[in-house]
Design a protein around this nucleic acid. Sequence first.
DNA 1: CAGCATCCGTTCTGATACTG
DNA 2: CAGTATCAGAACGGATGCTG
Lengths: 129, 129
Amino acid sequence: MVTINSAPGRGDAFDPECPTRVVLDRIGDKWTVLVIGSLVDGPLRFSALRARIGGVAPKVLTQTLRAMERDGLLTRTVHAQVPPRVDYELTPLGTSLTGPIATLTEWAETHLVRILTARDDYDTQAEAR
Amino acid sequence: MVTINSAPGRGDAFDPECPTRVVLDRIGDKWTVLVIGSLVDGPLRFSALRARIGGVAPKVLTQTLRAMERDGLLTRTVHAQVPPRVDYELTPLGTSLTGPIATLTEWAETHLVRILTARDDYDTQAEAR
DNA sequence: CAGCATCCGTTCTGATACTG
DNA sequence: CAGTATCAGAACGGATGCTG
């Protein structure tokens, strides 16, 4: 049994098992969303992922992939070959995350201009002082 | 004019103006979602917010609030009184963010158990080695 | 009351170089 | 090919003390 949301309606950012925190910690990460986006069309191997995303240090990519694997978002398949070949593929769970992400992206695209404008106003305001 | 999503379907995590990144950077922050959650029922003053959230250093809370104000998510109203009194209130923009957050929270609550189970499996697996 | 200044330990990040 | 090892720099988080 797992206790969910001990403080209903509020959430507890300290609780490492707070559902929202768990998810936010993962997709708040720069690389995770890019990995998901890169894998929606099908499995990819390490170097392909690396090339597709661009600018990722191998270490960081590995970290990201391991974290996602641990959370059951993707599978890591090692083929016993020389040279080695490792495929990464989204699990159904990982794929299902694309939904909420899309919602967020939509909101983001719709409201970005407002945010950017607000920033601009704020900054010129501050500048004036 | 603002260019949106220069690399359609993929997103560019490096572009500081990528809509998804802007939003993710904000709500990926531990405190932002708590602030939003605390303000949905109406405006609150600094100390009330602080008490409601619990465990926030004033500096960090200020940072969060400033960032949110800058993005137009909330307003900061200073009342000319002694002692000073400052009210924080969600803007319509800020309120509209509760939608996507709710979507995410729902997903999170639905799938948390799976994630936690996956972690457990992964960890015991690693432990066995 | 609201918050700024300061400081410090920790974490994160990425670059670079090397290996099974 | 698919990582691991190492390391320096930056960013962050938080505690403390002080002020308009």
